[in-house]
Design a protein around this nucleic acid. Sequence first.
RNA 1: GCCGCUGUAGCUCAGUGGUAGAGCGCACCCUUGGUAAGGGUGAGGCCGUGGGUUCAAUCCCCACCAGCGGCUCCA
Length: 735
Amino acid sequence: MPTITLPDGKTKSFDRPVTGLDVAQSIGAGLAKAALACKVDGETRDLSFVIANDARVALITLPKPGQPASEDALSLIRHSAAHVMAEAIQDVMGDDVLLAYGPPTDTGFFYDMFVPEGKRLSSERFDEINRRIAEIIKEDRPFTRYELPAEAGLSKLWNEENKYKIDNAERALGKPSSLYKGSKAGADASPAAAHSSAASLSFYATGAPGRNWEDLCRGPHVPSTGRIGAACVLSLASSYWHGDENSDRLTRVYGTAFPTQAELEAFLRQKEEAAKRDHRVIGRNLRLFHIDEDVGQGLILWTPRGSIVRKELQAFIGGELRKQGYTEVFTPHIGRLELYKTSGHFPYYKDSQFAPIIERQALEELSRSGCTCADMLNRVEGVSARLASGINERTGAQTIGPERVLPDDRLVEGFMLKPMNCPHHAKIFASAPHSYRDMPVRLAEFGTVYRWEQSGELNGMTRVRGFTQDDAHLFCTEDQVPGEVQGCLALVKIIFATLGMKEYRVRVGLRDPDSNKYTGSRENWDKAEAACIDAAKSLGVPFSKEPGEAAFYGPKIDFVVKDVIGREWQLGTVQVDYNMAIRFDLSYIGPDNKPHRPVVIHRAPFGSMERFCGVLIEHFAGAFPAWLSPEQVRVLPISEKSLDYGRAVLAALTQGGVRATLDEGNDRIQGKIKVAADLKVPYLLIVGPRDAEQGTVSLRVRGVEKDAGAMPLDAFVGAITSEIADRRADLGVRP
RNA sequence: GCCGCUGUAGCUCAGUGGUAGAGCGCACCCUUGGUAAGGGUGAGGCCGUGGGUUCAAUCCCCACCAGCGGCUCCA
């Protein structure tokens, strides 16, 4: 006799066990029709799930037409669509394609499967698969759940000879895997681990068990295939069983599904739109940057046009920094190895750094002495007893273990390409005594750093091996931390507002309460975390607290920006650091005339110039606001007869500080417009005999289909120079 | 780093076991045209690099390099 508590707090009593569907029907026929599944005491269940005891029940429903579906609803639809796609693929490819694991993701779903030797799943089969998916959806077959006791279920799977499903089942039952022999066995990349220990195994038939396609699955699913709406297969990739590279190689088939065909089409259009905005393509077409095989992977060559964009951004941020009392510094691209041993970055991050630079003489000497490579590595990575004891004493812990300490005459010195700027900045701070009266000391630098990113990770400008951070380190007293964090966020806010990035959110990375890996006192952490949270709150944008996401040396704030087509990009960061000042033994003299430890705030609102520009290119689709445009105005003479007037117009623009060019080619005006439009030049000035006579220019604005009309040249120059000076986001000049 | 796919002119891409094509771009000529490409002529390629198979390789095989899509990683 269950009593059901609904989300609004109302209760309903039944005189017999009921299903989720019964509950929905008792509320209304419309709700029953819209329901996909239910949540019983917080657990998502099939609509056919029988509720025998008192429970809290919420229904997961399809939205009203025109409304976006909830995450729960999408995830159900997609998980179900993964089954449908798998069935379609087996229909097309044969049953010897073995299914492994098919979960929903943020934007769709995938199914990992083993494709036998000799068969190949390629995108040429997608049409065929998609047609089959559409048929299965149209057939509107019910998802039918049935359970088998552990042994019966396992023997069924053994008969089917699919080791992946057997493995999933064993994990679901909490048994050790009898088939998966990977290095990560027991660790938990495993899909089925989410099952926790069950006593039985559940299967879902898409239709009738024994007659239609079925799959081992925990569920839940939508009531029938028709409820999926629309689904399609999207792409192929490869993956490993259990994510283990030593294990079987599987084919991962990606797809997505939506409640309606219209939403699916909108999603596909958005993907196309995103592809058109690809900064790698736009970067080439607009000649913004170049990556050259001979220079190296992940190393950006900023061409003249791209350099203008970067330079403008740097000038913009530089101006804001001056207003906030920062001072600018310059530091070299390399530093002694010992510097990074002091900071703790080497050898801790040695796998993601370029190899050290060892002097030629030292190498020759090592080679003569018969030193092996392994020996050399040890000798490069080792530290002197003096350095180790100094750091261990200051940090109050065995930060550098005895295994890394080598006698001085065994150590090999060298240099490193800097992987971050903080050690250099710490040394600048340490180079002069500081009074509490001077604090905070804010050192800013567009500092170029180098990191050995894995080759498979490299991507255009967004993931590179050499990049310039808009970096700064704020050396402050503990009391100053909240105010300085606030200042950093204010800066980010100005930047985003100027660039028209209206939507962003903030993630505040906090300590993992169950870990003691963190440096610094509890009180300091409490204060710093509170400062970060307060600062995030004050921004007036959504923020989330992420326990366990702090760096070991302090809490951090990350910015996630949404671009104009809704994609999220992680950009800048603000981090509070208690560790660096200790390792570098930094101090300032307090009012008590005693030395005190400063706290260091690391911050980079853009993150890196490369990544930020890459994101901006996609955000604007290459159509930058006038102040950022490499070429702000192009003068297009109607014919050679108007060239002289064109030159005069160009001179007036250039005198006014506008980046302008003159098209001296002998194309017709239509051709000149087409070429300039393709380059996304904001303003085109068409000049012909009429304009020459009247001292006007005929304006054409990027993105506007037709001629904007004529205006006096000096009026145009005045209008555009003020638009540029104000860094206005939109093209506002009109006659 | 791992897996898959790809690599032909500056760019986008056809194509073939007998050393190669288009469009755009570029150069020159004609055209002097008022708002998203007028016309012609021409230059430009060791078909990613190195091996192998073959009488013969851009094409088939292997390795490497690079790009793309993923996986894993990101101080």
